[in-house]
């Protein structure tokens, strides 16, 4: 064998080894201390891994990537902003969980009718025992509402109830009607009946009473809360319920085919005015109802849920 032959053989073999081994080695080194999370649409498996285990107080480094379409990543009930998870690209984030417990992580960009199934769990273990959190149960449970029961309101409106108009009668309104407790546990239709029966308001016309109902709603919201509710609705609800709440979102046909029911139409007064904030809270938190409505409980904070509920009435009030 001549020297050239030997040299070329050495070149070829080392070259092939480098080309094949170097990326694999580099990947193994780069993978130390990080968790690679792959997102796929729910139909192809959702998140991998779907359970991440971590020590309380220890930072975890996540490398997020999508294997198909655009996804997003956020931790439920947390203030950490969502990040985009792009196909074939990597988003790195570092998270630290101080308290042991179970956290949900979820996809934030709609990736098909089953987008909401794209969820995972972060189990945080630590020294301190996972104490059952002493939180009060949500209002709909305290009120023992049957959130699956139909709740039609038989109301007739001459025009859209207007909180600004309602404000001019607010001097007549007994203060008890403005408390959050009252507002949250009564549907607008019930509030209307209560106000109508109240001797203090006997002088008002029906449409004025409705304006007062809208006023009670607006008094229990803030502009920031409504804006947050609008953002949450656009990001999470509009794909099925429609951007104007009409129950005709881009996936409504899928929902109808699957569940035999269309998504709730918030522009229908009978539906929205018959639902109390607590009832809407229950539907949002628990979901289900055999309609393909996801359970948002693990994802939204208490405040976010109420912001969203407050926003839903904008489809009836102004």
């Amino acid at each position: 064998m001549k020297r050239t032959e030997l040299l070329s053989r050495i070149l070829v073999i080392t070259g092939i080894l480098i080309v094949l081994a170097a990326p694999i080695a580099a990947r193994a080194i780069g993978a130390q201390g990080v968790i690679e999370v792959h997102g796929r649409i729910a139909e192809s498996g959702g998140w991998t891994p779907s359970t991440i285990r971590v020590q309380a107080g220890m930072p975890i480094h996540l490398r997020l990537t999508s294997d198909d379409v655009m996804h997003g990543f956020a931790i439920g009930q947390s203030d950490t902003p969502a990040v985009d998870v792009l196909p074939g690209q990597v988003t790195e984030i570092t998270l630290t969980f101080d308290k042991p417990g179970t956290y949900a992580y979820y996809c934030t960009r709609w990736c098909g009718p089953n987008h909401w199934r794209m969820r995972g769990i972060i189990e945080v273990t630590g020294e301190e025992p996972v104490s059952p959190q002493v939180t009060t149960p949500p209002l709909y449970l305290m009120l023992n509402l049957d959130i699956d029961a139909p709740h039609p309101a038989s109301v007739t409106l001459d025009r859209i109830p207007d909180a600004q108009y309602g404000e001019q009668f607010s001097a007549l309104l007994p203060a008890a009607y403005l408390t959050p407790d009252y507002y949250r546990s009564h549907s607008p239709a019930q509030i209307y009946l209560d106000l109508r029966a109240d001797p203090a308001l006997v002088s008002l016309a029906g449409s004025d009473i409705w304006d007062l109902v809208a006023y009670i709603w607006l008094s229990n919201t803030t502009p920031e809360g409504l804006a947050e509710g609008q953002r949450l609705f656009a990001q999470n609800c509009a794909a099925c319920h429609g951007e104007t709440g009409g129950g005709n979102g881009v996936f409504s046909a899928n929902i109808t085919a699957l569940a035999g029911k269309t998504p709730a139409n918030f522009s229908d007064p009978a539906i929205t005015l018959g639902a109390s904030p607590a009832l809407l809270q229950g539907k949002i938190l628990r979901g289900g109802m055999g309609t393909g409505m996801p359970s948002w409980g693990p994802l939204f904070t208490d405040q976010q849920t109420w912001d969203l509920v407050g926003f839903l009435y904008t489809f009836q009030f102004k």
Binding site: L11, V12, G15, I16, I18, V19, L20, P23, I24, R27, T65, S66, D67, D68, P87, G88, Q89
Partner: peptide, 23 residues
């Protein structure tokens, strides 16, 4: 040699790289 290395690298990336074609 360079072409062969690139060719093997392309096969490798197809098997172990991202399944997203344009990346």
């Amino acid at each position: 040699f360079v072409m062969l290395a690139g060719f093997l690298f392309a096969i490798l990336s197809g098997f172990i790289g991202t399944p997203v074609g344009n990346r």
